[in-house]
Design a protein around this nucleic acid. Structure first.
Lengths: 246, 246
DNA sequence: GCAAAAGTGTTCGGAGTACACCCATGT
DNA sequence: ACATGGGTGTACTCCGAACACTTTTGC
Protein backbone atom coordinates (compact mmCIF):
# COMPACT_ATOMS: atom_id res chain seq x y z
CA UNK A 1 0.00 0.00 0.00
CA UNK A 2 2.71 2.51 -0.78
CA UNK A 3 1.40 5.86 -1.80
CA UNK A 4 2.48 7.76 -4.85
CA UNK A 5 4.41 10.85 -3.81
CA UNK A 6 3.54 13.91 -5.85
CA UNK A 7 5.73 16.99 -5.90
CA UNK A 8 4.09 20.33 -5.31
CA UNK A 9 5.35 22.43 -8.17
CA UNK A 10 5.18 25.88 -6.63
CA UNK A 11 6.56 25.39 -3.09
CA UNK A 12 10.21 24.58 -2.63
CA UNK A 13 12.65 24.42 0.22
CA UNK A 14 16.24 25.60 -0.07
CA UNK A 15 18.76 24.39 2.50
CA UNK A 16 21.88 26.38 3.18
CA UNK A 17 23.98 23.61 4.69
CA UNK A 18 26.89 25.11 6.61
CA UNK A 19 29.83 22.90 7.45
CA UNK A 20 32.75 23.88 9.65
CA UNK A 21 36.14 22.18 9.31
CA UNK A 22 38.02 23.74 12.29
CA UNK A 23 39.40 26.33 9.94
CA UNK A 24 36.68 27.94 7.84
CA UNK A 25 32.98 27.96 7.15
CA UNK A 26 31.80 26.04 4.09
CA UNK A 27 28.51 25.68 2.33
CA UNK A 28 27.27 22.64 0.43
CA UNK A 29 26.67 23.34 -3.26
CA UNK A 30 25.49 21.26 -6.20
CA UNK A 31 26.73 21.48 -9.73
CA UNK A 32 24.03 22.34 -12.26
CA UNK A 33 24.96 21.51 -15.84
CA UNK A 34 22.62 22.07 -18.74
CA UNK A 35 23.36 19.75 -21.62
CA UNK A 36 21.54 20.43 -24.85
CA UNK A 37 19.77 17.67 -26.79
CA UNK A 38 22.82 17.37 -29.03
CA UNK A 39 25.07 16.61 -26.04
CA UNK A 40 26.79 19.98 -25.91
CA UNK A 41 27.18 21.62 -22.51
CA UNK A 42 25.30 24.92 -22.59
CA UNK A 43 26.42 26.13 -19.17
CA UNK A 44 27.49 24.80 -15.80
CA UNK A 45 27.21 26.55 -12.49
CA UNK A 46 26.38 25.98 -8.83
CA UNK A 47 23.21 25.99 -6.75
CA UNK A 48 22.40 25.63 -3.09
CA UNK A 49 20.71 22.39 -2.10
CA UNK A 50 16.97 22.43 -2.41
CA UNK A 51 13.93 20.75 -3.79
CA UNK A 52 10.19 21.01 -4.17
CA UNK A 53 8.10 19.64 -1.36
CA UNK A 54 5.83 16.64 -1.68
CA UNK A 55 2.13 17.10 -1.28
CA UNK A 56 1.28 15.77 2.19
CA UNK A 57 4.74 16.72 3.47
CA UNK A 58 5.48 19.62 5.83
CA UNK A 59 8.28 22.00 4.94
CA UNK A 60 10.35 20.79 7.90
CA UNK A 61 9.98 17.22 6.68
CA UNK A 62 11.07 18.35 3.23
CA UNK A 63 14.13 20.11 4.64
CA UNK A 64 15.03 17.04 6.71
CA UNK A 65 14.62 14.88 3.64
CA UNK A 66 16.90 17.06 1.52
CA UNK A 67 19.49 17.05 4.28
CA UNK A 68 19.27 13.29 4.70
CA UNK A 69 19.47 12.60 0.97
CA UNK A 70 22.66 14.61 0.66
CA UNK A 71 24.46 13.73 3.88
CA UNK A 72 22.86 10.56 5.21
CA UNK A 73 22.41 12.40 8.50
CA UNK A 74 19.32 12.98 10.60
CA UNK A 75 18.99 15.10 13.74
CA UNK A 76 21.01 17.93 12.31
CA UNK A 77 20.50 21.48 13.54
CA UNK A 78 18.04 23.03 11.12
CA UNK A 79 16.25 26.33 11.21
CA UNK A 80 13.78 28.15 8.98
CA UNK A 81 15.20 31.64 8.50
CA UNK A 82 13.46 33.41 5.62
CA UNK A 83 11.20 32.91 2.64
CA UNK A 84 11.92 34.05 -0.88
CA UNK A 85 9.19 34.76 -3.38
CA UNK A 86 10.26 37.67 -5.54
CA UNK A 87 8.50 37.50 -8.94
CA UNK A 88 11.83 37.64 -10.75
CA UNK A 89 13.81 35.26 -8.60
CA UNK A 90 14.01 32.59 -11.32
CA UNK A 91 14.15 34.82 -14.35
CA UNK A 92 17.81 35.06 -15.22
CA UNK A 93 18.49 33.67 -18.69
CA UNK A 94 20.21 30.46 -17.55
CA UNK A 95 17.54 29.82 -14.94
CA UNK A 96 14.76 30.06 -17.50
CA UNK A 97 16.59 27.67 -19.82
CA UNK A 98 17.14 25.25 -16.97
CA UNK A 99 13.51 25.26 -15.90
CA UNK A 100 12.29 24.88 -19.48
CA UNK A 101 14.67 22.00 -20.11
CA UNK A 102 13.37 20.42 -16.92
CA UNK A 103 9.81 20.64 -18.23
CA UNK A 104 8.82 23.36 -15.79
CA UNK A 105 7.13 26.68 -16.39
CA UNK A 106 9.66 29.49 -15.86
CA UNK A 107 6.89 32.07 -15.52
CA UNK A 108 5.16 30.37 -12.65
CA UNK A 109 5.91 31.94 -9.30
CA UNK A 110 7.83 29.54 -7.08
CA UNK A 111 8.09 30.36 -3.41
CA UNK A 112 11.09 28.98 -1.61
CA UNK A 113 11.37 28.60 2.13
CA UNK A 114 14.98 28.97 3.28
CA UNK A 115 16.45 26.78 6.01
CA UNK A 116 19.99 26.71 7.27
CA UNK A 117 21.66 23.64 8.70
CA UNK A 118 24.77 23.40 10.86
CA UNK A 119 27.21 20.51 11.07
CA UNK A 120 30.88 19.58 11.18
CA UNK A 121 32.05 18.79 7.66
CA UNK A 122 33.80 15.69 8.99
CA UNK A 123 30.46 14.15 9.88
CA UNK A 124 29.64 13.81 6.21
CA UNK A 125 31.17 11.64 3.53
CA UNK A 126 29.96 13.13 0.30
CA UNK A 127 29.04 10.50 -2.20
CA UNK A 128 28.19 10.74 -5.82
CA UNK A 129 24.44 10.47 -5.94
CA UNK A 130 23.91 11.29 -9.58
CA UNK A 131 24.97 14.85 -8.85
CA UNK A 132 28.25 16.50 -8.14
CA UNK A 133 28.02 18.02 -4.67
CA UNK A 134 30.83 19.66 -2.76
CA UNK A 135 31.83 21.90 0.11
CA UNK A 136 32.73 25.44 -0.90
CA UNK A 137 34.28 27.92 1.53
CA UNK A 138 31.71 30.62 2.10
CA UNK A 139 34.11 33.42 1.22
CA UNK A 140 34.99 31.78 -2.09
CA UNK A 141 31.42 31.61 -3.32
CA UNK A 142 31.05 33.37 -6.65
CA UNK A 143 27.90 33.68 -8.69
CA UNK A 144 25.25 31.09 -7.86
CA UNK A 145 22.15 30.03 -9.78
CA UNK A 146 18.70 31.59 -9.25
CA UNK A 147 18.59 33.97 -6.27
CA UNK A 148 20.89 31.71 -4.28
CA UNK A 149 23.49 34.40 -3.60
CA UNK A 150 20.77 36.35 -1.84
CA UNK A 151 19.58 33.29 0.05
CA UNK A 152 23.13 32.53 1.19
CA UNK A 153 23.63 36.10 2.33
CA UNK A 154 20.44 36.08 4.34
CA UNK A 155 21.35 32.71 5.82
CA UNK A 156 24.67 34.13 6.96
CA UNK A 157 22.93 37.09 8.54
CA UNK A 158 20.54 34.79 10.36
CA UNK A 159 23.39 32.52 11.46
CA UNK A 160 25.43 35.42 12.86
CA UNK A 161 22.47 36.85 14.68
CA UNK A 162 21.57 33.48 16.17
CA UNK A 163 25.18 32.85 17.15
CA UNK A 164 25.28 36.12 19.07
CA UNK A 165 22.19 35.36 21.09
CA UNK A 166 21.90 31.61 21.50
CA UNK A 167 24.32 28.81 22.18
CA UNK A 168 24.58 27.04 18.84
CA UNK A 169 28.31 27.28 18.07
CA UNK A 170 29.00 23.62 18.91
CA UNK A 171 26.42 22.53 16.31
CA UNK A 172 29.26 23.16 13.86
CA UNK A 173 31.63 20.85 15.74
CA UNK A 174 31.84 17.13 16.53
CA UNK A 175 29.87 16.03 19.62
CA UNK A 176 33.04 16.26 21.69
CA UNK A 177 34.99 19.44 21.08
CA UNK A 178 37.69 21.60 22.61
CA UNK A 179 37.33 25.16 23.77
CA UNK A 180 39.77 26.41 21.16
CA UNK A 181 37.65 24.84 18.45
CA UNK A 182 34.57 26.52 19.88
CA UNK A 183 36.35 29.86 20.05
CA UNK A 184 37.40 29.46 16.41
CA UNK A 185 33.77 28.94 15.38
CA UNK A 186 32.81 32.27 16.91
CA UNK A 187 35.84 34.09 15.60
CA UNK A 188 35.43 32.95 12.04
CA UNK A 189 31.70 33.42 11.73
CA UNK A 190 31.65 36.76 13.52
CA UNK A 191 34.90 37.82 11.85
CA UNK A 192 36.60 38.91 15.04
CA UNK A 193 39.00 37.60 17.67
CA UNK A 194 38.61 36.92 21.37
CA UNK A 195 41.10 36.75 24.18
CA UNK A 196 41.59 33.11 25.12
CA UNK A 197 41.41 33.64 28.87
CA UNK A 198 38.32 35.82 28.72
CA UNK A 199 36.59 33.39 26.38
CA UNK A 200 37.27 30.54 28.80
CA UNK A 201 36.01 32.52 31.76
CA UNK A 202 32.80 33.08 29.85
CA UNK A 203 32.48 29.40 29.01
CA UNK A 204 33.08 28.48 32.65
CA UNK A 205 29.86 30.29 33.49
CA UNK A 206 27.88 28.22 31.03
CA UNK A 207 26.94 25.21 33.03
CA UNK A 208 25.64 23.44 29.94
CA UNK A 209 29.14 23.12 28.49
CA UNK A 210 30.36 20.09 30.34
CA UNK A 211 34.04 19.10 30.59
CA UNK A 212 34.62 15.39 30.01
CA UNK A 213 37.20 13.09 31.57
CA UNK A 214 38.72 12.79 28.19
CA UNK A 215 41.40 14.52 26.18
CA UNK A 216 42.33 14.97 22.56
CA UNK A 217 44.58 12.27 21.15
CA UNK A 218 47.29 12.22 18.56
CA UNK A 219 47.90 15.94 18.37
CA UNK A 220 51.42 17.36 18.29
CA UNK A 221 50.91 19.54 21.32
CA UNK A 222 49.42 19.40 24.80
CA UNK A 223 46.13 17.55 24.33
CA UNK A 224 43.04 19.61 25.08
CA UNK A 225 40.15 18.86 27.38
CA UNK A 226 37.02 17.75 25.53
CA UNK A 227 33.61 19.26 26.21
CA UNK A 228 30.01 18.29 25.57
CA UNK A 229 26.90 20.45 25.20
CA UNK A 230 23.98 19.43 27.38
CA UNK A 231 20.65 20.62 26.07
CA UNK A 232 18.93 19.51 29.29
CA UNK A 233 21.12 21.73 31.42
CA UNK A 234 20.71 24.56 28.95
CA UNK A 235 16.92 24.43 28.95
CA UNK A 236 16.88 24.34 32.75
CA UNK A 237 19.23 27.24 33.34
CA UNK A 238 18.50 29.54 30.45
CA UNK A 239 17.22 33.01 31.11
CA UNK A 240 16.62 35.86 28.75
CA UNK A 241 18.60 39.02 29.10
CA UNK A 242 17.37 42.45 28.15
CA UNK A 243 20.09 43.54 25.85
CA UNK A 244 18.71 45.93 23.28
CA UNK A 245 21.27 48.62 23.75
CA UNK A 246 24.05 50.11 21.63
CA UNK B 1 -2.78 51.67 -19.70
CA UNK B 2 -3.61 50.27 -16.28
CA UNK B 3 -2.74 46.66 -15.88
CA UNK B 4 -5.12 44.02 -14.64
CA UNK B 5 -3.96 42.73 -11.28
CA UNK B 6 -4.22 38.98 -10.92
CA UNK B 7 -4.11 37.27 -7.53
CA UNK B 8 -1.76 34.37 -7.11
CA UNK B 9 -3.94 31.67 -5.60
CA UNK B 10 -1.36 29.68 -3.66
CA UNK B 11 0.83 32.32 -2.02
CA UNK B 12 -0.61 34.47 0.73
CA UNK B 13 0.70 36.89 3.30
CA UNK B 14 -0.65 37.06 6.85
CA UNK B 15 0.03 40.18 8.89
CA UNK B 16 -0.03 40.04 12.64
CA UNK B 17 -0.61 43.71 13.33
CA UNK B 18 0.30 44.51 16.92
CA UNK B 19 -1.01 47.71 18.45
CA UNK B 20 -0.06 49.06 21.86
CA UNK B 21 -2.35 51.40 23.78
CA UNK B 22 -0.11 52.32 26.77
CA UNK B 23 -1.75 49.57 28.72
CA UNK B 24 -1.81 46.30 26.81
CA UNK B 25 -0.83 44.65 23.57
CA UNK B 26 -3.56 44.23 20.97
CA UNK B 27 -3.78 42.47 17.66
CA UNK B 28 -5.90 43.48 14.69
CA UNK B 29 -8.49 40.86 13.74
CA UNK B 30 -11.18 40.62 11.09
CA UNK B 31 -14.59 39.12 11.48
CA UNK B 32 -15.29 36.22 9.13
CA UNK B 33 -18.95 35.41 8.72
CA UNK B 34 -20.22 32.68 6.43
CA UNK B 35 -23.75 33.34 5.27
CA UNK B 36 -25.46 30.54 3.41
CA UNK B 37 -27.26 31.14 0.14
CA UNK B 38 -30.55 31.33 2.06
CA UNK B 39 -29.24 34.19 4.17
CA UNK B 40 -28.70 32.22 7.37
CA UNK B 41 -25.45 32.74 9.22
CA UNK B 42 -23.58 29.44 9.30
CA UNK B 43 -20.76 30.58 11.57
CA UNK B 44 -18.84 33.69 12.51
CA UNK B 45 -15.34 33.87 13.87
CA UNK B 46 -12.11 35.87 13.66
CA UNK B 47 -9.04 35.81 11.44
CA UNK B 48 -5.77 37.65 11.36
CA UNK B 49 -5.35 40.12 8.53
CA UNK B 50 -4.00 38.64 5.35
CA UNK B 51 -4.45 38.21 1.66
CA UNK B 52 -3.13 36.51 -1.41
CA UNK B 53 -0.38 38.28 -3.27
CA UNK B 54 -0.73 39.72 -6.74
CA UNK B 55 1.31 38.26 -9.52
CA UNK B 56 4.12 40.77 -10.16
CA UNK B 57 4.07 41.85 -6.52
CA UNK B 58 6.74 41.01 -3.93
CA UNK B 59 5.65 39.66 -0.57
CA UNK B 60 6.84 42.81 1.18
CA UNK B 61 4.73 44.90 -1.19
CA UNK B 62 1.79 42.64 -0.45
CA UNK B 63 2.29 43.03 3.32
CA UNK B 64 2.57 46.82 2.94
CA UNK B 65 -0.57 46.83 0.86
CA UNK B 66 -2.55 44.83 3.43
CA UNK B 67 -1.33 47.13 6.17
CA UNK B 68 -2.19 50.24 4.19
CA UNK B 69 -5.64 48.98 3.21
CA UNK B 70 -6.55 48.35 6.85
CA UNK B 71 -4.92 51.29 8.59
CA UNK B 72 -4.24 53.90 5.92
CA UNK B 73 -0.65 53.97 7.17
CA UNK B 74 2.60 53.48 5.32
CA UNK B 75 6.12 53.27 6.78
CA UNK B 76 5.06 51.01 9.59
CA UNK B 77 7.55 48.64 11.21
CA UNK B 78 7.09 45.33 9.43
CA UNK B 79 9.07 42.14 9.60
CA UNK B 80 8.87 38.74 7.99
CA UNK B 81 9.09 36.23 10.84
CA UNK B 82 8.03 32.77 9.65
CA UNK B 83 6.30 30.87 6.87
CA UNK B 84 3.43 28.45 7.30
CA UNK B 85 2.73 25.68 4.83
CA UNK B 86 1.49 22.66 6.74
CA UNK B 87 -0.68 20.48 4.48
CA UNK B 88 -3.56 20.60 6.95
CA UNK B 89 -3.40 24.27 7.87
CA UNK B 90 -6.70 25.10 6.11
CA UNK B 91 -8.53 21.84 6.70
CA UNK B 92 -10.72 22.50 9.71
CA UNK B 93 -14.41 22.09 8.82
CA UNK B 94 -15.29 25.80 8.89
CA UNK B 95 -12.19 26.69 6.91
CA UNK B 96 -13.07 24.23 4.14
CA UNK B 97 -16.62 25.60 3.99
CA UNK B 98 -15.29 29.15 3.84
CA UNK B 99 -12.87 28.41 1.02
CA UNK B 100 -15.49 26.48 -0.95
CA UNK B 101 -18.02 29.28 -0.54
CA UNK B 102 -15.35 31.69 -1.73
CA UNK B 103 -14.88 29.62 -4.88
CA UNK B 104 -11.48 28.34 -3.82
CA UNK B 105 -10.12 24.81 -3.71
CA UNK B 106 -9.76 23.73 -0.06
CA UNK B 107 -7.41 20.90 -1.01
CA UNK B 108 -4.86 23.10 -2.70
CA UNK B 109 -1.83 23.80 -0.58
CA UNK B 110 -1.59 27.48 0.29
CA UNK B 111 1.65 28.77 1.70
CA UNK B 112 1.41 31.81 3.90
CA UNK B 113 4.30 34.09 4.74
CA UNK B 114 3.87 35.63 8.19
CA UNK B 115 4.77 39.25 8.90
CA UNK B 116 4.31 41.17 12.09
CA UNK B 117 3.76 44.90 12.25
CA UNK B 118 4.17 47.25 15.19
CA UNK B 119 2.31 50.50 15.82
CA UNK B 120 0.55 52.57 18.46
CA UNK B 121 -3.19 51.84 18.29
CA UNK B 122 -3.88 55.56 18.50
CA UNK B 123 -2.24 56.06 15.10
CA UNK B 124 -5.12 54.20 13.45
CA UNK B 125 -8.74 55.11 13.06
CA UNK B 126 -10.42 51.88 12.11
CA UNK B 127 -13.03 52.39 9.47
CA UNK B 128 -15.67 50.10 8.12
CA UNK B 129 -14.27 48.91 4.84
CA UNK B 130 -16.84 46.25 4.02
CA UNK B 131 -15.42 44.16 6.86
CA UNK B 132 -15.63 44.39 10.58
CA UNK B 133 -12.09 44.83 11.89
CA UNK B 134 -11.11 45.48 15.47
CA UNK B 135 -8.35 45.51 18.07
CA UNK B 136 -8.35 42.51 20.38
CA UNK B 137 -6.10 42.31 23.46
CA UNK B 138 -3.60 39.55 22.79
CA UNK B 139 -4.38 37.74 26.01
CA UNK B 140 -8.08 37.67 25.22
CA UNK B 141 -7.67 35.95 21.88
CA UNK B 142 -9.68 32.74 21.77
CA UNK B 143 -9.96 30.39 18.83
CA UNK B 144 -9.06 31.93 15.48
CA UNK B 145 -9.73 30.72 11.95
CA UNK B 146 -7.29 28.55 9.97
CA UNK B 147 -3.92 28.13 11.71
CA UNK B 148 -4.01 31.72 12.92
CA UNK B 149 -3.59 30.84 16.59
CA UNK B 150 -0.29 29.23 15.68
CA UNK B 151 0.71 32.19 13.54
CA UNK B 152 -0.09 34.61 16.36
CA UNK B 153 1.90 32.52 18.83
CA UNK B 154 4.93 32.44 16.56
CA UNK B 155 4.60 36.18 15.93
CA UNK B 156 4.66 36.78 19.68
CA UNK B 157 7.76 34.63 20.06
CA UNK B 158 9.49 36.53 17.28
CA UNK B 159 8.42 39.87 18.76
CA UNK B 160 9.74 38.98 22.23
CA UNK B 161 13.01 37.74 20.86
CA UNK B 162 13.47 40.84 18.73
CA UNK B 163 12.55 43.09 21.64
CA UNK B 164 15.25 41.51 23.78
CA UNK B 165 17.99 42.07 21.24
CA UNK B 166 17.15 45.13 19.19
CA UNK B 167 15.72 48.54 19.97
CA UNK B 168 12.20 48.34 18.59
CA UNK B 169 10.05 49.05 21.65
CA UNK B 170 9.21 52.60 20.58
CA UNK B 171 7.74 51.26 17.32
CA UNK B 172 4.70 50.52 19.48
CA UNK B 173 4.48 54.11 20.70
CA UNK B 174 3.75 57.54 19.18
CA UNK B 175 6.78 59.28 17.64
CA UNK B 176 7.26 61.25 20.85
CA UNK B 177 7.04 59.11 23.97
CA UNK B 178 7.94 59.09 27.64
CA UNK B 179 10.30 56.73 29.37
CA UNK B 180 7.51 55.28 31.49
CA UNK B 181 5.61 54.42 28.33
CA UNK B 182 8.67 52.73 26.91
CA UNK B 183 9.22 50.81 30.10
CA UNK B 184 5.61 49.64 30.01
CA UNK B 185 6.09 48.28 26.49
CA UNK B 186 8.92 46.08 27.69
CA UNK B 187 7.16 45.05 30.87
CA UNK B 188 3.97 44.01 29.18
CA UNK B 189 5.44 42.18 26.23
CA UNK B 190 8.12 40.42 28.26
CA UNK B 191 5.71 39.87 31.15
CA UNK B 192 8.04 41.21 33.81
CA UNK B 193 8.78 44.41 35.71
CA UNK B 194 11.81 46.65 35.82
CA UNK B 195 13.09 49.06 38.41
CA UNK B 196 12.42 52.58 37.21
CA UNK B 197 15.83 53.96 38.13
CA UNK B 198 17.75 51.09 36.59
CA UNK B 199 15.67 51.26 33.43
CA UNK B 200 16.42 54.97 33.08
CA UNK B 201 20.11 54.46 33.65
CA UNK B 202 20.05 51.95 30.84
CA UNK B 203 18.22 54.34 28.55
CA UNK B 204 20.69 57.10 29.39
CA UNK B 205 23.38 54.96 27.77
CA UNK B 206 21.42 54.70 24.53
CA UNK B 207 22.45 57.77 22.67
CA UNK B 208 19.80 57.17 20.04
CA UNK B 209 16.98 57.90 22.50
CA UNK B 210 16.97 61.65 22.40
CA UNK B 211 15.27 63.84 25.02
CA UNK B 212 13.25 66.69 23.53
CA UNK B 213 12.68 70.19 24.88
CA UNK B 214 9.10 69.24 25.27
CA UNK B 215 6.89 67.76 27.95
CA UNK B 216 3.62 65.90 28.19
CA UNK B 217 0.57 68.12 28.41
CA UNK B 218 -2.78 67.75 30.11
CA UNK B 219 -1.88 64.94 32.45
CA UNK B 220 -2.95 64.97 36.08
CA UNK B 221 0.55 64.57 37.42
CA UNK B 222 4.04 65.92 36.85
CA UNK B 223 4.41 66.03 33.07
CA UNK B 224 7.09 63.75 31.67
CA UNK B 225 9.95 64.53 29.34
CA UNK B 226 9.32 63.38 25.77
CA UNK B 227 11.85 61.33 23.82
CA UNK B 228 12.50 60.54 20.17
CA UNK B 229 14.25 57.58 18.57
CA UNK B 230 16.97 58.48 16.09
CA UNK B 231 17.73 55.72 13.61
CA UNK B 232 20.74 57.64 12.32
CA UNK B 233 22.37 57.72 15.74
CA UNK B 234 21.47 54.09 16.27
CA UNK B 235 23.04 52.90 13.04
CA UNK B 236 26.19 54.87 13.79
CA UNK B 237 26.69 53.66 17.34
CA UNK B 238 25.37 50.12 17.23
CA UNK B 239 27.65 47.24 18.07
CA UNK B 240 26.87 43.61 18.49
CA UNK B 241 27.46 41.96 21.80
CA UNK B 242 28.36 38.34 22.27
CA UNK B 243 25.67 37.23 24.62
CA UNK B 244 24.99 33.56 24.12
CA UNK B 245 25.27 32.62 27.73
CA UNK B 246 23.00 31.28 30.46
C1' DG C 1 -4.50 69.14 49.94
C1' DC C 2 -4.47 64.98 47.68
C1' DA C 3 -3.89 61.67 44.05
C1' DA C 4 -0.85 60.31 40.42
C1' DA C 5 3.08 59.56 38.04
C1' DA C 6 7.90 61.83 37.27
C1' DG C 7 12.33 61.98 38.56
C1' DT C 8 16.64 61.06 41.11
C1' DG C 9 21.76 58.32 43.87
C1' DT C 10 24.25 54.87 46.28
C1' DT C 11 26.04 50.44 47.34
C1' DC C 12 27.48 45.82 46.10
C1' DG C 13 28.61 41.94 43.43
C1' DG C 14 29.62 40.18 39.05
C1' DA C 15 31.02 40.52 34.19
C1' DG C 16 33.87 42.60 30.42
C1' DT C 17 38.53 43.77 28.99
C1' DA C 18 43.43 43.96 28.75
C1' DC C 19 47.46 41.57 29.31
C1' DA C 20 52.12 37.34 29.54
C1' DC C 21 53.91 33.17 30.76
C1' DC C 22 54.54 28.01 31.61
C1' DC C 23 52.94 23.15 30.17
C1' DA C 24 52.30 18.68 27.70
C1' DT C 25 52.79 16.35 23.63
C1' DG C 26 54.70 14.69 18.86
C1' DT C 27 58.39 14.82 15.84
C1' DA D 1 65.34 20.40 21.46
C1' DC D 2 61.83 22.61 19.35
C1' DA D 3 57.34 23.65 17.49
C1' DT D 4 52.55 23.72 18.54
C1' DG D 5 48.66 24.84 20.73
C1' DG D 6 46.74 24.18 25.88
C1' DG D 7 46.02 26.25 29.92
C1' DT D 8 46.06 29.76 33.72
C1' DG D 9 45.40 34.93 37.21
C1' DT D 10 45.13 39.82 38.29
C1' DA D 11 43.62 44.64 38.11
C1' DC D 12 40.34 47.92 36.53
C1' DT D 13 36.17 49.51 34.88
C1' DC D 14 31.48 49.25 33.96
C1' DC D 15 27.02 47.16 34.33
C1' DG D 16 23.06 44.95 36.75
C1' DA D 17 20.28 44.73 40.84
C1' DA D 18 18.31 46.29 45.04
C1' DC D 19 16.26 49.96 47.31
C1' DA D 20 12.97 55.18 49.10
C1' DC D 21 11.95 59.71 48.84
C1' DT D 22 10.85 64.41 46.75
C1' DT D 23 8.60 67.03 42.84
C1' DT D 24 5.12 68.75 39.71
C1' DT D 25 0.84 68.83 37.93
C1' DG D 26 -4.67 68.51 37.67
C1' DC D 27 -8.56 68.23 40.22
Amino acid sequence: MTQMRVLNNYISVDCVIFGFDFDKLNVLVVERTLTNDDGVVDFSDLTLTGNHIFEEETIVEAADRILFDLTGLADIYLEQFKTFASPDRLKKENDRKWLLHDGRDPDKRIVSIGFFALLATQKVTLEWKGRNIKWLPVDEVKSLAFDHNLILEEALKALRSKLLHEPIGFELLPDKFTLSQLQKVYEIILDTTFDKRNFRKKVARMKYLIPLNEKQQGVAHKPAQLYLFSREVYEKTRKEILNFLV
